[in-house]
Simulated scan of single mutants.
Amino acid sequence: MTSLSSSADTNATATLWTPRLLSVFRIVLGLLFLAHGLVKLFGFPTGAQPGVVPLLSIFGLAGVLELVGGAAIVLGLFTRPVAFILSGQMAVAYFMAHASQGFYPILNGGELAILYSSAFLYLAAVGAGPWSLDARRNA
């Protein structure tokens, strides 16, 4: 009987923590992404690449999407549509900046773009989780 109760405990724990960990994942992802926008728009932290870029450029547009989109993801505000847009941004970034440098992501430096694109696509599918403004709006 212990295997059945152990299985039930595992399922109860998963049921309790899976949505919460989705929220933690979303917040961490948003904070990391937001940092890319801070570098492009404000040069913070100093020394990070690429540094401040012209606002009216493709990198400036990327910086705005990263800053505003990253903040929306952290807050869990309009998560599904924002995550879908950011997933597309990262797919475009991969093909514009990395794919032309070689086929293999490990060699062309595109792993992070692929990872962000995939993570945002996941959030677009599953939503923000319970610790979000989306959950508060829908409650």
Rank of each mutant, 00 (worst) to 15 (best):
L38H: 07
V82A: 02
V68N: 11
G70H: 00
G63Y: 00
V82P: 01
K40A: 06
S87W: 07
V39N: 12
V52G: 07
I73P: 00
L61I: 08
L86M: 14
L75Y: 00
G47T: 10
G60C: 11
I85G: 04
T46Y: 14
P54C: 14
Q49R: 12
G60W: 15
G69D: 05
G76D: 03
G76R: 00
P50D: 06
A35K: 09
F84D: 04
I85R: 01
A72R: 05
P54I: 14
F78N: 00
Q49K: 15
F59W: 15
F84K: 08
L77I: 05
P54L: 13
R80M: 05
V53R: 14
L75H: 02
G37E: 13
G76P: 00
V52E: 07
G76H: 03
G37A: 10
K40N: 08
P50G: 05
G88N: 03
Q49N: 10
P50C: 08
G37L: 14
A35N: 08
G47S: 13
G88D: 07
L55I: 15
A83E: 03
G51D: 09
A72D: 11
I73H: 01
L65A: 08
F78R: 00
Q89M: 14
S87N: 09
V64Y: 06
A72W: 07
S57I: 12
G88F: 02
I85Y: 00
G88R: 06
V39Y: 01
